[in-house]
Design a protein around this nucleic acid. Structure first.
Lengths: 268, 268
DNA sequence: CGATCAATTGAGGCACTTCAACATAGGTGG
DNA sequence: CCACCTATGTTGAAGTGCCTCAATTGATCG
C-alpha cells in the first residue's frame, strides 16, 4: 500500500513498516492525572518548584497508537503536542520528489510535534514502531508554566540530538556512525530504567540506515564488523554491548585514536 | 592559533576563521527598546495580540561581536539567549576527539542558544562571520509571554532547519545538496528584504562543505557544475541565481526528475 | 507450510575524498 | 606603489568507502 506519492517512475519497490495506511484515529482514552502517571520524574513538570501542585492539577487525554499507524502526518494542522507514555516512534520527512529520511526516534518521555510550532502544521510523519500510548497536550496548554518549561527542555533536547546526528553523518565513517548510534540509543534506554548493555532495537536496518545516511546493507556489514571486533553481540534486533569503552571510543565519545577525515576538519 | 584540543597527532594544519582566540567580551551596548528596533516585525513579539504593548515594554541590552569572535563556547553556562540584530553567525559542534562540524548558520532575527536550554550549558561554539550585533535575552525572560512564543517558534524553526539539513545530507548527492543549500540561503535572506537571486555568501567553501558533509573541493566543483549548467553565476562569494526553477528542481524542492538513491528510499 | 518481509553476504562500480599543484584575493610593511 | 605573505579558491589525477545489484537464508504470520 502506498501512503505517499512514491509511485514515481522507477521507484524501488521497497516496503517498510508504516505502510498500512491506517491513520491513527484510535479512540481517545480516559484522561489520566499527571500525579498518577508512571513517567513521574521523567515527564512534566520535572524540576519546577510548583511541581506537585501543577502535577495534581494537570490531567491529559491519552491515545493509543497501534504499530505501523501514524501519530501524525506531514501537513496536518498543528493542534497538540504529544508525549510518549509508552512505546516507540519514528519521525521521517520527505523531500518534494518523495525521497524520505528518518530524522528521529522517540522513546517514552519525548515530546513529539515541536517541529510544528513554527509552521502551524506538522513537518514530519510520525509512525509507531510498536503499540504505543501517548498523552495529548493541546497547543493552548503550552503557556502553562510547568508545561512550558518541560516542552522548552524537550525541544532543546531534540535540537541537540538532531545536531548530534548531523555531526555523526557529516564527520564519521559508517562504522563509527553505527557505534555512535548504538551508544546513544543505549543511553536513552538507560535513562528510562533499562539495562545499559542489553536492549532490543525497535527499528529495521533500513530505518537505522536511513537515519544515519547509510544503506541497509552497510548497517548489516558494520554490525558484523563490530561483532567481529568483540564490541557487541547481535541476535536479530537484540544487541548486547560487550565492550562499552571500546564502542564509545570508536564513536568518538571518549578517548580518540583515529585521524579525522578531511571533510570534517575545520582546523583551528 | 589553536582554541581547541585539535593539536591531536597528525591533525591537518587547516586554518579557519574564528581562530583568533578572542572570546567575545566586547562591552555591552546601551539597551534598545524593542519598539524602536529595525527588526520590528521579524523579531519578537510578532503575531501576539499584546504585541505593541509588549514591544514598548521590552528593552534589551545589545552586544557587539567582532568578526571571528565567539558569541559563546561549548560548555559555557547558559545564562541568556541571543537574537541576531545584524550580522551573521555560524554554530559548530565537536566530537570528543576534536572533529568539528558546522551545524547551523544564523541570520538576523534568529535566536541563538536554544540548544543550551536543556543542558544548562551551550552545546556548540558560535562564531561571528562578520562584525555583528545581538540582543541579550536573560534566561529568566523566557517566561515572558511575548518572548516565550517567539522563542518557541524560533526553536521550532531551528529544529526544522536541522532536520532539513539531515534530509539533505542523508538523501541528496553533492550537487543536489549544494543546490538545496543555495535555495535555502537565498530564501532566508529574501525574508530579510534581500534580493532573492543575488547575494553574498558569508562563509568559506570549507564551512559550507562542513555543513553539508562534503569536502571543500567538492563544493568548488559543484559550484562550477551549477555554473556550467547555467543555473547560477559565481564570482568569489557572490552568487547570482540565473534559473531559480532549475535550481529548485535540482534541490528536489519542486518538480522531480531524478531517481532516489537507495540509501534514501524508505519505500512505502 | 507457503508467502512475505528482514537480514546477511558477495562482487563490481562510481561518487566523493584525498593529495597535490597552482591561481587569486586581501592585507601588511617596506 | 611594489613585493610579499597568508588564506581562500580552483582544478587535475588517483584511491577507496560505500552504494548498487543480486542471490540466499532466516524470521514471522496467516
Amino acid at each position: 500500500m502506498s501512503h505517499f506519492d512514491s509511485r514515481r517512475p522507477g521507484a524501488p519497490a521497497l516496503h517498510l513498516a508504516a505502510g498500512s495506511g491506517r491513520t491513527a484515529c484510535a479512540p481517545a482514552d480516559r484522561s489520566t492525572s499527571c500525579s498518577e502517571c508512571n513517567l513521574r520524574g521523567i515527564c512534566l513538570p520535572s524540576g519546577s518548584k510548583a511541581q506537585d501542585d501543577t502535577r495534581t492539577r494537570l490531567a491529559y487525554v491519552g491515545r493509543r497508537i497501534k504499530r505501523d499507524d501514524f501519530l501524525c502526518r506531514m501537513g496536518w494542522r498543528f493542534e497538540s503536542l504529544h508525549i510518549v507514555r509508552s512505546g516507540f516512534f519514528l519521525s521521517r520527512t520527505a523531500s518534494e520528489d518523495g525521497r524520505q529520511q528518518v530524522i528521529a526516534f522517540h522513546v517514552p518521555g519525548d515530546v513529539i510535534g515541536v517541529d510544528a510550532i513554527a509552521g502551524e502544521a506538522y513537518a514530519s510523519d510520525v509512525v509507531a514502531l510498536e503499540d504505543s500510548h501517548v498523552c495529548v497536550i493541546p497547543a493552548a496548554d503550552m503557556s502553562e508554566p510547568g508545561v512550558r518549561q518541560h516542552v522548552a527542555k524537550m525541544m532543546s533536547n531534540e535540537l541537540v540530538r538532531a545536531r548530534c546526528a548531523m555531526l555523526w553523518i557529516g564527520t564519521l565513517d559508517a562504522e563509527e556512525r553505527l557505534a555512535a548510534f548504538l551508544v546513544g540509543f543505549s543511553e536513552r534506554l538507560f535513562a528510562l530504567g533499562n539495562a545499559r548493555d542489553d536492549f532490543r532495537l525497535r527499528m529495521t536496518r533500513l530505518e537505522i540506515g536511513s537515519y544515519l545516511g547509510l544503506s541497509l546493507e552497510t548497517i548489516c556489514r558494520m554490525l558484523a564488523r563490530l561483532r567481529e571486533a568483540g564490541l557487541i553481540s547481535v541476535d536479530q534486533r537484540r544487541i548486547r554491548i560487550l565492550d562499552m569503552q571500546g564502542l564509545r571510543s570508536m564513536a568518538c565519545m571518549a578517548g580518540d585514536q583515529k585521524q579525522a577525515p578531511r571533510r570534517a576538519a575545520l582546523g583551528s
